[in-house]
């Protein structure tokens, strides 16, 4: 199979099948909720939807989202932005992707989902892979969840959040309570502590590439991930905001150095339909 067709396959698979860690977390959530509750009805619907989409190859959610390709730098020549763009156009024509790319000035749709800056393609450190070999990871993130992402600047007097890990904790819990079910809960949080505004959003989103349950590299953050997951799930927001024990499926945190004057806490909210998949080339 040629490269473009393999990339089309990656798009189709990503759009129709959730990663195993996300599915396992959804199944565990379904077992945890009371039978007959709204939470249980919502999670059953989600699981049935995933099984069906995976079987038929249809998009599991109609908002096929912002397409972000993370490509090992060792594949820079082989997996070019042009090759990716061509695959995206073919996948759109075949109904694996919605016509989802709009010019913000004219309001016109780019019907093949190709434009300057779309899809998003980033070449990342390959970790020593030989040229022509490596991994392509696709992350699809819908607009409903993207609209819920947010950034705090510490100290925040209104929240009573200071410039320490406890302040970070208050920001994250505040975000989860404010977001309610609007981002299609149960969600997954990518959190960046520190950095500047731009890298904060970038690094927070990158944390969504990490499977649920794989803890952060720094001990203090790994501990905070566990604590925040447990505490957020006592808020009672529940699946789709109808109440219940499962508000979040996971919390993934990372940190970046900050300058003395700034202390940002950035939260990338991902819906339960966390579509990510990796192709080895």
């Amino acid at each position: 199979m040629n490269l473009v067709e393999r990339l089309v396959g990656l798009i189709r698979e990503t759009s129709s099948s959730l990663p195993t860690d996300v599915l396992a977390a959804l199944r565990a959530a379904y077992r945890r909720e009371d039978a007959g509750s709204s939470a249980s009805v919502v999670l059953r619907t989600i699981l049935d939807n995933c099984a069906l989409a995976s079987k038929t190859g249809s998009p599991l959610c109609q908002d096929t989202g912002t397409l972000a390709f993370f490509v090992d730098a060792s594949l820079r020549r082989k997996v070019s932005p042009d090759a990716i763009g061509e695959a995206v156009a073919i996948a759109t024509e075949r109904g694996h992707l919605r016509k989802n790319t709009i010019d913000p000035i004219t309001g016109k749709s780019y019907d093949d989902n190709r434009a300057e800056g779309a899809p998003v393609v980033r070449y990342v450190d390959a970790g020593g892979a030989a040229a022509g070999h490596g991994r392509v990871t696709l992350l699809m993130k819908g607009g409903g969840s993207e609209n819920m992402s947010r950034q705090y600047s510490l100290p925040d007097a209104g929240l009573g959040a200071g410039r320490d890990l406890e302040g970070v904790r208050i920001c994250v819990l505040d975000a989860v309570q404010k977001i309610q079910g609007y981002g299609c809960a149960p969600g997954i949080l990518g959190v960046c502590v520190g950095g500047d505004r731009a890298t904060g959003y970038e690094v927070a989103k990158e944390q969504l590439l990490r499977p649920i349950g794989v803890r952060g590299r720094r001990g203090a953050l790994a501990e905070m991930e566990r604590r925040l997951l447990e505490e957020a799930n006592t808020l009672g927001v529940g699946p789709m905001g109808l109440g219940g024990k499962t508000t979040l499926l996971g919390v993934n945190m990372a940190s970046r150095p900050r300058v003395p004057a700034s202390f940002f806490v950035t939260i990338a909210y991902m819906c339960w339909a966390c579509r990510r998949r990796t192709l080895e080339i």
Binding site: V42, N49, L52, L60, Q62, M240, A273
Partner: peptide, 13 residues
């Protein structure tokens, strides 16, 4: 009526 966000395939069916 709250439909389940993201359950696009099931609703299509």
């Amino acid at each position: 009526v709250q439909a389940v966000g993201g359950a696009g395939a099931l609703y299509a069916e």
